[in-house]
Simulated assay, not measured.
Amino acid sequence: MSRVTLKTVAQAAGVSPSTVSNAYNKPDQLSAALRERILAKAQELGYAGPDASARALRSGKVGAVGVLFTDKLAYAFSDPYAVGFLAGLAEVAEEFATSLLLVPLSPTDIQGGTNAVQQAAIDAAAIFCVAAGHPALDVLKNRGIPMVSTDRGDHPDLSWVAIDETAAAAELGRHLARLGHRDLVVLLDNAQAAGSRPVELSLDEVGYTDCELRVRGLQKAMPDARIRLVSGGHNAFSSGLAAAEWVLDSQDRPTAIVGLSDVLALGAMEAMKTRGLVPGRDLTLAGFDDIPAAGTVGLTTVSQPIKDKGRTVGRMLLDPAFTERQITMPTELKVRASSGPAPRN
């Protein structure tokens, strides 16, 4: 049986090919009766409609926004922060009949990620948790793909929806300083597998802009404190657990631990629990983001509007009426039971 095409339907319905095309793409240009007759004939012949790729070539649009992030694909569905951000972005994408294409960038296979971005059929890109200077960003720029990042940038041509990471972390730092803390361990993520052997890092080894700015904010607010950076792998509960176990089992235990995400802090809370330590009494614990679980367990954390950030990125990418290009979202320190005065030696 020969392939049924738009021209086949036009001949069978006794109309021109452009009229059949209008029945699918410009229904307001046809009477309801004529459109229904054409669609009925198309269904009878088994015609599914105009070819999507051909339509994309004509319009120059594919109807998709790429979401770039540096992690495995499963991260987008398992990390509470990522889930909230994507939910907000998806709301706006749905409003504009646009799909989302998740583009994970492996921290070890840089070329593979760059090739994926080069080949991705997208109209725009949301840059979510991608290290500054990743070559995939240059690919997008060379392709002329509009981008909106969740990291702030200094150049006036950059588009971003972000928080003031330094100021938010400094507010947390001042809270810890008022409680008398002068010895702090910061848990952060790196490119290693979740739950990897913990390593102590220097600030120039951090790699992610948001993490670096948060550390600088803590340093600014706590200039007299000793602040050590420890990572147990990429952003995951098991990474926070592994890093905190290593810290808590050392002879040089701090008076406070800060996870640069709530997920890491929750892992640290589990490590404390198994050692009979009570957050806020034996050792202060704080996080960052204010995911739903943070409030449930009484975690002191920096709250940011996760879902609204996703919505605003989507609006900036897709809504022609939205003209702002650089937006700083508000944050708030949520003080809960997990923070308390530094224990006296």
Score class of each variant (00 low, 15 high):
residue 192 Q to D: 14
residue 257 I to F: 10
residue 16 S to H: 06
residue 272 M to F: 09
residue 69 F to D: 04
residue 118 Q to G: 15
residue 170 A to Y: 00
residue 238 S to N: 07
residue 231 S to D: 00
residue 303 S to C: 02
residue 85 F to G: 06
residue 339 S to T: 14
residue 18 S to D: 00
residue 257 I to G: 00
residue 90 A to K: 13
residue 92 V to G: 02
residue 337 A to P: 00
residue 113 G to D: 12
residue 229 L to S: 03
residue 184 L to I: 12
residue 20 V to F: 06
residue 307 K to P: 00
residue 220 K to H: 12
residue 86 L to Q: 08
residue 61 K to L: 09
residue 284 T to R: 09
residue 296 T to D: 10
residue 129 C to V: 13
residue 332 E to S: 12
residue 138 D to S: 14
residue 158 L to F: 08
residue 179 L to Y: 04
residue 39 L to N: 08
residue 209 T to R: 13
residue 175 H to G: 09
residue 301 T to D: 01
residue 52 A to W: 01
residue 251 Q to N: 10
residue 206 V to A: 03
residue 297 V to R: 09
residue 104 P to G: 12
residue 55 R to F: 00
residue 77 F to H: 01
residue 133 G to P: 13
residue 73 L to I: 11
residue 293 A to Y: 09
residue 277 L to Q: 04
residue 258 V to A: 11
residue 315 R to L: 09
residue 281 R to Q: 15
residue 104 P to C: 11
residue 173 G to E: 05
residue 3 R to S: 03
residue 119 Q to A: 15
residue 230 V to E: 10
residue 298 G to N: 03
residue 238 S to A: 10
residue 167 A to D: 09
residue 100 L to F: 07
residue 214 R to F: 11
residue 35 R to V: 06
residue 125 A to R: 05
residue 88 G to R: 08
residue 137 L to D: 02
residue 52 A to D: 04
residue 208 Y to I: 12
residue 95 E to C: 06
residue 314 G to L: 07
residue 228 R to W: 01
residue 167 A to M: 07
residue 191 A to N: 10
residue 87 A to K: 13
residue 184 L to V: 10
residue 320 P to R: 01
residue 162 A to P: 04
residue 29 Q to W: 10
residue 130 V to H: 05
residue 65 V to A: 08
residue 341 P to D: 05
residue 175 H to Q: 13
residue 318 L to I: 00
residue 134 H to K: 12
residue 11 Q to R: 11
residue 26 K to A: 12
residue 104 P to N: 13
residue 225 A to S: 12
residue 9 V to I: 11
residue 164 D to E: 07
residue 130 V to N: 06
residue 220 K to R: 12
residue 265 A to L: 11
residue 101 L to D: 10
residue 234 H to S: 04
residue 113 G to P: 06
residue 333 L to C: 03
residue 56 A to V: 09
residue 101 L to Y: 13
residue 130 V to K: 06
residue 213 L to Q: 14
residue 183 D to T: 11
residue 271 A to G: 07
residue 152 R to P: 03
residue 153 G to T: 01
residue 121 A to I: 14
residue 25 N to R: 14
residue 338 S to V: 01
residue 274 T to E: 15
residue 14 G to Q: 04
residue 181 H to V: 09
residue 17 P to H: 07
residue 27 P to F: 07
residue 222 M to D: 04
residue 59 S to I: 11
